[in-house]
Amino acid sequence: MSKWQDFRRKHVLLMNTLFTVAVPLTVWLVMELLDYSTTGLHTMNSMVDWTTLMRNLVSSFCFALGLNCNMALGRMDTSTGSQMFLACILGGNLALSLNLGGVGVLVFSMLLGMVAGAFVGFLFINLRILPMVLGLGISLVYECISFSANNQQGLNLFGKPGVGILSNRLFIIGITVLIMLVMTYLFQYSPFGYKRRAIQGNQKLANDAGINIYVNALLCYTAAGALVAVAGVFDTAYKSNLVPVLGMNSNSTVFSNMFPMAVGLWLAKKSNPVIGILAGSLSVQFLVLGLAKFTNIGMSDYMQTCIKYSVWLVFMIYRMNEDKIQLIKDKRARVALAKATRAQRAAVAA
């Protein structure tokens, strides 16, 4: 036991890496066992699954990361989903009309995402309405705009020249790595990241120390907009088209991507938020793909939804109570000590 603890102390990095890798690996293993035993299929059945996994991974990774930009600072931006729609539909179609291909779609969507995000940020720092409430209003407006744009057709990527690259595995890996590098830099090593962390701790102190919290918030929103736009493009590449929604339905994208974010932030305690969220997204994607295999034995997508969200619930129960176990242990030790002291005193008194 002590040897093991000693080893753990010595190889912190190794242990942290193992922890980070272990979670998605465990999810995969569990799904693989379940899938193979019930349907005879593997979770990763063919190259198609790998492509799907990677595309969905980069999509959910970017979206969760985008959410985290603001969420970590106590700003739950309910409009990120509508920013995604706006950015992809306006930017993507602009790129397509200029015949810029997949890369163009990606770049233009990102740019539009930054504009969309920055506008929300601008309103936020000026109106100072609670982010969640602001998000509600913004999503109404953004949804309306993205719906009316492009003749209500949304963004259609299937069969468009040059968009095949968005399904190219190497390209996807490249983009994922690039985003990881950029975001790690932004979050962890850049002046922006340092300031952001300070604001995350205490915005008043940060403000008093001369950090411009307003510019920082604006940048956070801008980065979030860019990230969800990337997420939207890859999602569209998978689903072929992005159909505009109304009635605050874009919120559901936000909510469903909170799962990878929650897992990611939990994993992040042993690494950093970027790697954590990647591992978190990977875990969730394994779960979704694994569940999809049950379609073969007649499980409806409602059932799959049920299971996916139940897993989320169980995870949250664990996450919010993991420290309780230690607490109970400590408490037991303390009670024992108290009993001993009491006995000792009684002995002395006697």
């Binding site: 090593y189 850049s190 002046p191 340092y194 300070a198 995350q200 701790g201 102190l205 940060a206 950090i211």
Partner: peptide, 27 residues
């Protein structure tokens, strides 16, 4: 209380004046 809990002591000491540790684009 004038320190921020979640960042390092060093960051607290140089809160707001990170610029001077800038080495190229990183701190």
């Amino acid at each position: 209380a004038g320190t921020i809990a979640n960042i390092s002591v060093a960051e607290n000491i140089f809160l707001g004046s990170y610029q001077k540790f800038r080495k190229g684009p990183i701190i």
